[in-house]
Design a protein around this nucleic acid. Structure first.
Length: 727
DNA sequence: AACACCGCGTTTTTT
DNA sequence: ACGCGGTGTT
């Protein structure tokens, strides 16, 4: 293949990234600078120009969607699929290694993956067994702790409590959880990465084999790597291997789930002779949108620094709409969409972005009323639905009887007369004897521990699973799934429910059977089709609902979900203090920059036209709150903005000062009759002098946010705070 | 074992 | 406001 074919439509920087010599490379790629394109072209260049064998290439992404897209685009470019190349997510690839080397990884051959819901239930069971107070130690927090530690590469044994009781309790649970998972042959998402890291670290020959094999490691969205992922990459990159990563520190929006932006900064030190290439030409947005985004992100400190520029036209100003409330905001957006659509803008070129999912509701209602088709991204995924997980649990028990998560799920689904008492005894026996629930059932029914009725019910369940297994052993995956589900009693169980969703659940179960028909697992993998299918359901939880995919729909999603996508017309909704930046982020120091990056991501999704909307008053969690416009609006150059009203009339050029100093929109009802108002200077007995900057709630529930000269911002209940008004 | 009621939490999401 | 999970009632 001709090199020109791979390089001809690339700019100089892109070209440099694609045909760079074989060294370690860090590509800092700004939004819309052709990041994925460069990655795909690099791989094609390696194969066709540098004569690199596909077998020695490892390409890593974060999502299955990105992996799939990459595979397809490489095949397109090469006009043939590159066999032998490993392209996948961190989890997918690590899982593959664990399956191939399950013995060395000290896992049972049929180990199963649990999702965070399974993990939660398992933790709940363990904590109850240990009699730990869930009020005091919320399961969610324990889960957060354990996953956080695993992401840092730490097992319970590695963690020092320094005599702190809270950490000691967490560690006790962590240890018990590790044991329970080992016993049941279960592996959670974080464990996949951690276990794989340990596998390679502790097996020198294996490590050397893969280090020699993967001469070229390429990583997408590098700014999102966490500690263990980074350690995994370092381990796998051998003496002679080269690592090529692409990322953008300005688009790092997953710090809250462990992503370490520092990994980009460390990269050049940790990998010798790293070349750095910046991709700064943006091909997506108008000059106006890009300048505004640049101005915004410039307010962040500690950037690696990039200056995005574009050849494209100035384009329209960014429109800012100040709505009275969220209803008005939605109406404005829907009206504008209708106008734009009438003028030829396809609906699927329009995106509505918001900070939190709760905001989608009113937008959906308004779109529905107006008869505008829309699609909401990020609902529950197919394989995470309760009835699907029930069905999968039967299959999991066939593969591994000791899978406690699956056992708990279906021991009484459908109900088969096994009561809470019986279950408690099973759990207790399992815990004290260190056996699975399945083994506990065998032990206790054999020992005649239970009343005859309970014992019979448990034995019947054991026999059901055994016979489902026996009778379906020689069937194909599809036939087997069909057989197991039909005989599990799940269909009858769902049918008995008289809810409106029952029909839907039945269809979902049918769809699960259907899914097995379309599942083809790679023949190079040694595991059975069923084991592979089960792993697939955990690792790729399903692509949302495909039904509305082909229709021309307005796209609704959170700002996080929008990363990596682009749309000609973008609305960013709910640009209010407390909402975006979110209240949570404001209360915690140092989290504002990530919020700013999130808006940067949102703004740079827009190709032609961007709207920023906010509501002066919004109904949230039942009560009305009054928010000021987001500080981020004031951070944008005012000559790039215009304030609009319905029908897109420009009301007046937008003054930045408008956001800094203006009085709140009318007098918020919440403060009426209290003698206080937003902007009021006040004195507090212990905090001293300050200014009321915000208020919410009504009557005796009225709370005000006061920015104190000495003590920072605090929310106070007005009635209790005994504030003294100052002139 | 099904149903009613209470109380809590409610930023962002992938695997 | 609203949904979910957990508990208590029939």
């Amino acid at each position: 293949m001709d090199a020109e074919l791979i390089l001809h439509d690339l700019n100089a920087a892109q070209r440099a990234a694609v045909n760079a010599p074989l060294t370690n490379l860090l590509i800092l790629a700004g939004a819309g600078s052709g990041k994925t394109r460069v990655l795909v072209h690099r791989i094609a260049w390696l194969i066709t120009q540098a004569q690199v064998a596909p077998l020695s290439i490892l390409a890593v992404t974060f999502t299955n969607k990105a992996a799939k897209e990459m595979r397809e685009r490489i095949a397109d470019l090469l006009t043939t699929p590159a066999h032998g190349m490993w392209v996948g997510t961190f989890h997918g690839l690590a899982h593959r290694l664990l399956r191939a080397h399950w013995q060395a990884a000290q896992l049972p051959e049929t180990f199963q993956i649990i999702d965070s819901d399974d993990q939660y239930r398992l933790l709940r069971r363990i904590m109850r067994g240990l009699e730990i107070d869930e009020e005091k130690w919320p399961i969610k927090r324990v889960q957060w702790f354990i996953n956080g530690k695993k992401d840092e590469g730490l097992r319970a044994a590695h963690i020092e409590s320094f005599g702190r009781l809270d950490i000691q309790v967490m560690l006790r649970i962590y240890e018990a959880y590790e044991q329970a998972c080992a016993l049941a042959g279960l592996v959670d998402f974080a464990e996949i990465l951690l276990r794989c890291h340990e596998l390679l670290r502790d097996n020198t020959e294996l490590l050397q084999y893969y280090q020699r094999r993967f001469q070229h490691i390429l990583v997408d969205e590098f700014q999102d790597t966490n500690t263990i992922q980074y350690a995994w990459l370092r381990l796998l990159t051998g003496q002679d291997s080269k690592i090529w990563v692409v990322g953008d520190d300005d688009q790092s929006i997953y710090g809250w789930r462990g992503a370490k932006i520092e990994n980009i900064q460390r990269f050049s030190q940790d990998f010798a002779d790293t070349q750095v290439i910046r991709l700064e030409q943006n091909y997506r947005s108008t000059a106006t949108i890009l300048s505004a985004a640049n101005a915004l992100i410039a307010q962040n400190a500690e950037r690696l620094g990039k200056d995005l520029w574009t050849d494209s036209a100035q384009g329209e100003l960014i429109s800012v709409y100040a709505a009275f409330n969220e209803i008005d905001e939605a109406r404005f957006i829907v009206d504008t969409i209708k106008t734009q659509h009438r003028q030829g803008m396809p609906r699927n070129h329009i995106a509505l972005l918001y900070r939190s999912n709760a905001q989608s509701r009113i937008l959906e209602e308004t779109l529905l009323q107006a008869g505008v088709p829309y699609r909401v991204y990020g609902g529950q995924r197919f394989f995470e639905r309760a009835e699907i997980k029930d069905g999968l649990a039967y299959l999991r028990l066939l593969v591994n009887r000791h899978d406690d998560a699956a056992f708990e799920r279906v021991i009484n689904t459908p109900t088969r007369g096994i009561g809470e008492r019986t279950l408690l005894e099973l759990r207790e026996h399992a815990r004290t004897q260190q056996v699975s629930l399945w083994q506990a059932s065998i032990d206790l029914t054999g020992a005649k521990q239970f009343a005859a009725r309970a014992s019979n019910a448990v034995v019947a369940f054991l026999q059901l699973i055994d016979s489902l297994d026996n009778d379906s052993k020689n069937l194909t995956l599809h036939q087997q799934t069909q057989y197991v589900l039909r005989h599990s009693g799940l269909f009858e169980h769902v049918l008995k429910e008289k809810s409106q969703t029952a029909q839907n659940r039945l269809e979902n179960l049918e769809e699960l059977i259907n899914a097995t028909q379309h599942f083809h697992h790679l023949s190079e993998e040694r595991s059975s089709p069923l084991v592979a299918f089960l792993a697939h359901t955990a690792l790729e939880s399903g692509e949302g609902d495909a039904s509305s995919e082909d229709e021309e729909c307005v796209q609704l999603m959170t700002l996080h979900t929008a990363k990596g996508l682009e749309f000609p017309l973008v609305f960013i909704c709910g640009m209010e203090e407390g909402l975006f930046p979110s209240k949570m982020a404001l209360e915690e120091m140092g989290r504002l920059e990530e919020e700013r990056r999130l808006l940067y991501v949102g703004m740079t999704r827009a190709m032609q036209k961007l709207y920023l909307c906010y509501a002066e008053c919004r109904r949230l969690h039942g009560s009305e709150i009054y928010n000021r416009a987001s500080r981020f609006i004031a951070e944008l150059p005012k000559d790039l903005l215009q304030e609009v009203r319905l029908k897109n009339q420009v009301v007046r050029p937008l003054q930045t000062t408008h956001y800094h100093h203006r009085a709140p929109p009318a007098m918020p009802a919440v403060l009426q009759g209290t003698g206080f108002k937003v902007g009021q200077r006040v004195n507090h007995r212990s905090f001293g002098e300050g200014v009321i900057v915000d208020a919410e709630g009504q009557g005796e529930h009225t709370r005000v946010q006061v920015r104190f000269k000495q003590h920072g911002s605090k929310w106070l209940v007005l009635q209790l705070a005994k504030l003294e008004a100052l002139v």
